[in-house]
Simulated scan of single mutants.
Amino acid sequence: MHSASPMRKVFQGVPDRRQMFRMFDRHAQRPNRWKDDAGELYIGEWFEISERDHDHMFEILPPLWMRGDMFAMREFLTGSVTSVFFALTIDGEIRHFHGYCDLSDKPSPDRMRAAIVDRESRPVKAMTRTERLEHIWSATHDDYRGYAGERWPEDMRGKRTITVYGGSRGTTLKLLDDLTDEEISAKLPVHLRYLPDAIAA
């Protein structure tokens, strides 16, 4: 029996190829990188990609499998977790996406497809607080993001941290989840700052 991981959009817009490859391993800085199974960090993450990058990934290696509007990468990220790529018709337009699915949970690619179509079919472009935080994490350079270590209280260790600029107060390190609305707005690109809040599905 598998517990369904939440499907979550981790980047707003279409990244360029450099950003895409960087987001394939968004959690590279995690503690104990080589000692733990990080599948739970990745399962359910998805973002849009360009048609060119979708086709590029298809040509790298023969897919593990192809099924209608999706294919799975032959190389696994960890355990039974691998990249699944989608070419989906949404509002009459073909768009392309990447997501991480646990293939030991056979329905997971279909659940991801449904989640993507549902999220991207909404008539008003909006972002939840979680989507805003995930976009900030995806877009921030490794030098300015990390994980709470031994200097943090024990209950905070291992949580994601990010550098915040405080004007005359200089920079501080905060937990990503503790950013205020003002700090979130300051870290988003201008075209995303004023999108309405979306109600989480």
Rank of each mutant, 00 (worst) to 15 (best):
A87Y: 04
A87G: 02
A87L: 03
A87Q: 04
A87C: 07
A87I: 03
T89Q: 07
T89S: 05
T89F: 05
I90P: 01
I90W: 07
D91E: 15
D91F: 12
G92H: 04
G92R: 01
E93V: 13
E93F: 11
R95T: 08
H96M: 06
H96I: 02
F97L: 02
G99I: 00
D102V: 02
L103F: 07
L103K: 07
S104A: 15
K106G: 11
P107W: 04
P107H: 06
P107F: 00
R111I: 09
R111A: 07
R111N: 12
R111Q: 11
R111E: 09
R111H: 10
M112V: 01
R113E: 05
R113Y: 03
A114K: 14
I116Y: 00
V117M: 07
D118E: 15
R119W: 03
E120F: 11
E120R: 09
S121N: 04
R122D: 06
R122H: 11
R122G: 07
V124L: 08
V124G: 02
V124P: 02
M127C: 06
R129T: 12
T130W: 11
T130L: 13
E131M: 00
R132Q: 01
E134W: 11
E134N: 14
H135Y: 07
I136P: 01
W137I: 04
W137A: 08
S138A: 15
S138D: 09
S138F: 06
S138P: 04
A139S: 13
T140Q: 05
T140M: 04
T140S: 10
D143M: 09
D143T: 06
G146T: 00
A148I: 11
A148W: 10
E150K: 15
R151D: 15
W152V: 08
W152Y: 13
W152K: 09
P153C: 09
E154A: 14
D155R: 14
D155E: 14
R157V: 11
R157H: 10
K159P: 06
T161K: 06
I162S: 03
I162N: 05
V164D: 03
Y165E: 13
R169Q: 12
G170L: 04
T171F: 08
T171K: 14
L173D: 15
L173N: 15
K174D: 13
L175M: 11
D177R: 15
D178R: 12
D178K: 09
D178H: 13
L179S: 03
L179I: 08
L179H: 04
L179T: 06
